[in-house]
C-alpha cells in the first residue's frame, strides 16, 4: 500500500501514452469482456434461482442471499475503487476498469504492469514511459491473468473429486472441511494484515468483534435483517477503529 501512495504522487506527471490509454478505442475494446462477466452472472443467477427453488430453498432464503451479496459488496467495491485510482494513474481508465472487473485484483495488476514497463527500463510513474512500454504492460497483465481463467475453465469439474477425497466419503465431514478451508484461508488473509501495523491489526480485531456481537444479537432476536447488515457494520466500525488508532497512537511496529 505504500507503493500505491507513491504512485499517486506520480499522478501529476502525465506520460505521453495517456492519450492512447484513455482513448475511445480502448474503452470500446474493454466492453466485450466486461459484458461476458455480466452475462455469466446473469446465466448463473437465473439457473441458481430456478433450481434452488426446486431444491426446496424458500423465496425468502433466495432473496436474502441476493440482498446480502449485494449489500456486502458495496463496501469492498469502494475499496477496490480506491485501489483502482493507482491503476488509472498508470494504465488509464479503460484498462484499469477492465482489469479490476475481470480476473484481476490490484495486488496482481500493479506488479504485472510494473514488470511490463520494466522490460524497457522504466518504472510505473515515470513521466517518459513510451507507448511501446505501455503496450507491453497491457500484454503482461492480459497474458498473466489468463492463467487463472484457464485453470478455472478447464479444472473446475475435476475439483469435486479432489474435495471428496479429502472428506474421505464421509458426508458429515464436508461442512467441517469447508468451514476449515474458509477459516484457513481467512487466517492467511488476516495474518498478512497483522505485520502491516497496529491500525490494520485493530481493524481486523474490531471487524471480528463487531461480527460476533451483531450475529449474537441477530440470533437472540431471530432478526434476519440484522444478519444482512452484519458484514457492512463490521466493515464500517473496523475502518473507523483503524483511523482512530492511526491518528491517536499510530503504529507500534
Amino acid at each position: 500500500m505504500i507503493a500505491v501512495t507513491m504512485w499517486y504522487e506520480a499522478f501529476s506527471l502525465v506520460p505521453a501514452y495517456m492519450d492512447i490509454a484513455n482513448s475511445r478505442w480502448l474503452w470500446l475494446a474493454t466492453v466485450p469482456v466486461v459484458s461476458v462477466v455480466l452475462l455469466q452472472a446473469a446465466i448463473f443467477l437465473r439457473r441458481a434461482w430456478q433450481d434452488g427453488k426446486e431444491m426446496g430453498l424458500s423465496d425468502e432464503q433466495l432473496r436474502s442471499g441476493f440482498k446480502t451479496g449485494f449489500i456486502s459488496a458495496i463496501g469492498p467495491a469502494f475499496a477496490v475503487l480506491a485501489g483502482m485510482l493507482a491503476l488509472i494513474a498508470t494504465v488509464g481508465g479503460p484498462v484499469a476498469w477492465m482489469r479490476l472487473s475481470v480476473i484481476g485484483s490490484v495486488a496482481f495488476e500493479l506488479p504485472a504492469a510494473e514488470i511490463g514497463v520494466s522490460q524497457f527500463g522504466y518504472s510505473l510513474g515515470d513521466g517518459d514511459i513510451t507507448r511501446e512500454a505501455y503496450t507491453t504492460a497491457v500484454w503482461t497483465m492480459t497474458l498473466g491473468g489468463t492463467g487463472w481463467l484457464l485453470v478455472s475453465a478447464l479444472g473446475t469439474p475435476h475439483m469435486e473429486s479432489a474435495r471428496r477425497k479429502i472428506a474421505n466419503g464421509k458426508d458429515d465431514l464436508i461442512p467441517v472441511v469447508s468451514s476449515a478451508a474458509m477459516l484457513g484461508a481467512f487466517a492467511y488473509f488476516l495474518s498478512g494484515e497483522i505485520p502491516a501495523g497496529t491500525p490494520e491489526t485493530g481493524s481486523v480485531a474490531a471487524g471480528g468483534l463487531v461480527m460476533l456481537v451483531v450475529l449474537h444479537i441477530a440470533d437472540k432476536r431471530d432478526a434476519q435483517w440484522v444478519r444482512e447488515w452484519a458484514l457492512g457494520t463490521a466493515m464500517v466500525v473496523g475502518l473507523l477503529v483503524g483511523v482512530a488508532i492511526q491518528v491517536t497512537v499510530g503504529s507500534w511496529w
Binding site: 475499496a79 468451514s179 471480528g208 463490521a234
Partner: peptide, 26 residues
Amino acid sequence: LWRSALESYLVPAVFGAIFAQFGRDY
C-alpha cells in the same frame, strides 16, 4: 487520511469479520 483509510483498513475489517463468523461455529 480518508483516502488511505479506505485503502488500508476496510479490507482487514472484512477479513476479521468473516473469520469470526466461521469461528463462532468452530
